[in-house]
Every structure is written in C-alpha cells, then in structure tokens.
Simulated scan of single mutants.
Amino acid sequence: MTVQDIRSFNRFYTNVIGALDYSSRLYAPYTLTEARVLYELAHSSRTDAADLRAELTLDSGYLSRILNKFEQDELIERAPSERDPRRRRVTLTVRGRETAHLLDERSTEAITSLIATVPDADRPRLTEALHTVRSLLSDGRPPRREDVVLREPVPGDLGWIVQRNAALYAAEYGFNTDYEGLVARIVADFAEDHDPHLERVWIAELDGRPVGCVMCVRDEAPGTARLRLLLVEPQARGLGIGDRLVAAVVGFAREVGYRDLVLWTQDLLTAARHIYRRHGFVLATEKPHRSFGRDLVGQDWRLDLHAATETMESIETTERWSDG
C-alpha cells in the first residue's frame, strides 16, 4: 500500500459519487460544507456554534458566514446556550429541518442508485470492505461517543428495528414472538402513514452500522407524543447512545409543540428507566400483566415538556462538571 494507492482510490471514488458536481446536483443551492453543517445541526445533540466548529474543523469566520446565510434563509435560530450563556446555541427551524431532510434524501437516492449497480451477491463483500477500511484507518482505537451519529432512517433501517428488537429482547429477557409482532405493527404503521413534521425515527450509527434506534409518534391524547422502541446494541452500550436518543426525542417533541411526552416500558428494563428519569420523566402508573411469554410489570411514564428545559439544563451542567 502506498500513498499513491490511496490518492488513486480517492480520485476514483470522487468521480463515482459525483462529488465534483455537488453545486448542480446533490446539495443545491448549498455547498458541500454547508450541507455538512445542516446535517450536523439535524443529527447532533450538541449544537453550540463552538461545538460545530470543533466537530467539523471549520474556521470560525467561515462557519459564521455559513450560519449568517442560514439565518437569512430562515433555516436556523440562534440564542444564548443553555450550557454556557457566553456561547451561542444554534437550532434548526421547521424550514431548516425540511431542507436538511431534503438534502439527506438526495444523498440517499444517489448512494442507492450507486449500490443498485452492484450485484446482490457482491454487496456483503462491499459492506465488509468498507468496514475494513474504517477499522484499519481508525488505528484499532475503541469507539468514542463522538463517533456515534444520529441520523434519519434509510431503506432497510425499519426492518432492522424489527429484527434487532425481536432478537435482543428474546436473548436478554426471554420475550417470545408476540413481541416481534408488536414491534412489526408499530413500525409498519409508521412506514405506511406518518406525519414527518410531527413524527420521526432516529438511527444511531457507529462505524457505518446501526447500533440504536428510537421513535417519536403521535399519541391518541391531543398534544401528546409517544416515545417508542428505544434500543441500543450491547456492543455499543456505555457510549451514552440511549441518553442521546431520548434527548433527541425530547428536543424534537418540544420543538414541534407537543405538551406531553409519554412512554410504556417494563420494570425490568432498569437502564432505560434510569435514562427516562434523568430526562424528567415521572412514573404515572404501573400494572402487572402477562405478555410476550412472561409475567411483567408494565409502567407508564410521562414528561411535562414545559418543565423539560429546566431538567436538561441540570443534566448539561452535570455533564460539563463531569467532563472536567
């Protein structure tokens, strides 16, 4: 392997994905860097301008010009940071989120078209080769929190949610196929009929693989959203993924105007309940039941979203002190 080999591959791949033609195709009317900033705002739990600059290794003046453009286009709003009033917090407006979603869709369509040229029998080999490159160039270091990306689902992800929920809950808690049926119905209902302005799915991705998920859907009660299907793969636990996924749901539900956020869980899911409590959820009711082949105690938890801001400020303050 030589430097020239890598440079040759870079030129090849750049031509294949059309990266030299972003201005007229994938990200118009925005540049590739501007699209990266939008993507980060749509998927990161930390959206202070300073965090964006560090995450994307951008010059502060360059990032400021991009954010000014976004503000003029009504894509973002800026306000003092909840973690540090000296910082500026940047959040997407509804229009900004729609724009980020559109650009993400274009990128997904381009990659889908590219993959369509690869025979089905060769796709596992391609996937493994991509993972090998990432693993080798990461120098064998263990995964870090900042390596995890929260993104919207792409084709195949909803099926993954059903499969991994069924497999993990069977392996860890002895749930039978009734649970797989429940998850399949929840996911099918979302896929067939959901309001993208009020309902979302997040996929946590690490090294190109999905390692977690969560959903936010409308509840039957007016003004209420429901958190569903929170899951983190065993090998990715300890990276704060569950906390980030719940924070994403809470932030989204507040942003789009829900008054309350509810969820149903089981008392044996102690790690998840700890996360819910940290984000201000309060146990409303609990009731024994027989489901999924087990005797369980179901719990309903509720979060008053008007009180969520104070809770998150407390969490972020604790995190800032624990980070040293």
Rank of each mutant, 00 (worst) to 15 (best):
E313Q: 09
G324E: 02
F70S: 05
D260R: 11
D51R: 02
D48S: 14
D73H: 03
V246T: 01
D300Q: 15
L168F: 01
I76N: 09
L52A: 08
E220R: 07
A129W: 10
D147Y: 09
T112W: 13
T99C: 12
H289K: 09
R7I: 10
S23H: 07
G96C: 11
A50Y: 09
P222F: 05
V154N: 06
L130K: 11
G208M: 14
T93R: 08
D5S: 07
R83V: 15
D193W: 00
R83W: 10
F190P: 01
Y179S: 04
Y179N: 06
P210R: 03
P143Q: 02
G257A: 10
A308I: 12
D219P: 04
Q266N: 12
L239R: 00
D48A: 11
L41I: 00
A129I: 07
F175Q: 02
L263Y: 02
R294E: 04
D267I: 14
T309Q: 13
Y39M: 09
D295R: 15
C216P: 05
D243Y: 01
Y62E: 08
D300T: 12
H43V: 07
S64H: 09
E152G: 12
H274L: 08
S291P: 04
T311I: 09
T112M: 12
A110H: 03
H101I: 06
Q266R: 15
R278L: 04
R36H: 12
Y169H: 12
P80H: 02
A100I: 03
Q72G: 07
I275E: 00
A110T: 03
H274D: 06
D84K: 13
A116P: 06
S23M: 04
Q4W: 09
L227W: 03
D323A: 08
D51F: 03
D122M: 10
V37L: 02
I203T: 00
R302Y: 13
R218S: 15
D295L: 15
D139Q: 10
D73N: 06
L227S: 05
D157N: 04
